[in-house]
């Protein structure tokens, strides 16, 4: 067991621990913070795998974007500082069962896949390659999904502006 493996287990334990705390804590803001830590843990896992681009995007999108939005909406909610009531016993039993079932299902799938040990060459992707692939029109190019997502975001943005826009009343 070398240092790299130890670091992997530390990161994995951090992700899982933060994830469990996120769903078990009874304060909503703390829950968001644990979710944040869990997502940061995933980003650090990407860094550990040396796919820095994905890690940075993970931080930008999830940590800097989505969690900050979640925190903002918590700020704007009433009584968000109170402790939430304890969950019902039935509900916790069923959710534990569901989690167990889901875990068994995915574990089974992963075990059956049988990962091949490949000779590890340094996995390095240049950012320019990612950019080229994103806009290429060849067989494995991503120009169509890229443009579709762009249109979707544009529509969302225009929608936001329309909702937020002040309507000028022309009385008389």
């Amino acid at each position: 067991m070398n240092a790299s493996v130890i670091i992997f287990y530390i990161i994995a334990a951090f992700i899982l621990g933060a994830g469990i705390l996120a769903v078990t804590t009874r304060k909503i803001f703390r829950s968001a913070i644990w979710l944040l830590f869990s997502l940061i843990g995933i980003a650090s896992l990407y860094f550990w795998m040396q796919v820095e681009f994905v890690a940075a995007v993970q931080i930008v999108v999830y940590v800097g974007g989505i969690v900050v939005l979640i925190i903002f909406s918590i700020f704007l909610t009433q009584k968000s500082g109170d402790e939430m009531p304890k969950p019902l016993k039935n509900r916790s039993i069923f959710s534990a069962l569901a989690v167990l079932f889901g875990f068994a299902f995915t574990f089974n799938l992963i075990k059956q896949y049988g990962f091949k040990q490949i000779e590890s060459t340094p996995f390095e992707v240049k950012v320019s390659d990612i950019g080229n692939q994103m806009l290429s029109t060849t067989e494995h190019g991503f120009v169509l999904p890229f443009e579709v997502v762009s249109i979707l975001l544009l529509a969302a943005m225009i929608g936001c502006i329309v909702i937020a826009m002040k309507v000028k009343h022309n009385e008389q």
Binding site: I33, E52, A56, V57, I59, V60, E124
Partner: peptide, 17 residues
């Protein structure tokens, strides 16, 4: 790091947390 500038802007967005 090969994505230096992206890393900078990503991590600096954490400071708001």
């Amino acid at each position: 790091i090969n994505i230096g500038v992206l890393y900078l802007s990503a991590v600096s967005s954490l400071s708001v947390i």
